[in-house]
Simulated scan of single mutants.
Amino acid sequence: MDANLNSQTAWTVTPGLSPRELECLAWVSQGKSSTDIGAILGLSARTVDSYLEKAASKLGVRTRIEAVAVGVRRGLIEVD
């Protein structure tokens, strides 16, 4: 397969992020820590981290910041 085709395809395919994964990403985009997000959503910081790890994996990235960047580019989350 052509590597360029794979890169283009990766940017156009939208993975099925759960509502909670999207919500956690949206809070990260607002500068909130896992502890802060957990307090807002009534979850443990570890559960928030788990949602963020799953979201990053689905988006094909390694960090929460990369996940937010990809989410914004794909229109999955909005930032003010």
Rank of each mutant, 00 (worst) to 15 (best):
Y51K: 04
K32C: 07
L59T: 06
A69R: 10
D2N: 13
V79N: 10
R20G: 00
L59Y: 00
A39P: 00
L76P: 08
A67N: 03
L25H: 13
T12P: 01
C24T: 09
L22W: 01
P15G: 04
G31A: 02
Q30I: 00
S18T: 15
A45V: 04
T47C: 06
E78W: 05
A67S: 04
V61E: 15
V72R: 03
E53V: 05
T35H: 15
E66N: 07
A67W: 09
K54W: 06
G38P: 01
V13C: 07
G31E: 10
T63S: 15
V28L: 14
A56L: 06
I40P: 00
T14R: 10
K54I: 05
T47G: 07
E78T: 10
K32A: 12
T47D: 07
S33C: 13
L5A: 08
A67G: 07
Q30P: 00
S50A: 15
R46G: 09
L17C: 15
S50L: 10
T35L: 06
N4I: 08
Q8P: 00
T9Q: 07
E53R: 06
L22K: 12
S34H: 15
L41P: 01
K32Q: 10
V28P: 03
S50R: 14
R73K: 14
S29W: 03
A55E: 02
V79Y: 04
Q30E: 08
T14L: 09
N6I: 13
A55D: 11
A26W: 11
T63P: 07
C24E: 03
S50P: 00
D2K: 13
K58V: 00
D80K: 06
Q8Y: 10
C24P: 06
S34E: 13
E66K: 08
N4F: 14
A10C: 02
R74G: 02
V28N: 00
L5V: 14
S34V: 02
E66L: 00
E78I: 04
A26T: 07
S29G: 13
I37R: 14
G60D: 11
C24Q: 02
S29F: 01
V28H: 07
T14S: 12
L52Y: 03
T63K: 09
Y51I: 01
Y51A: 01
G31N: 15
T14Y: 03
K32S: 10
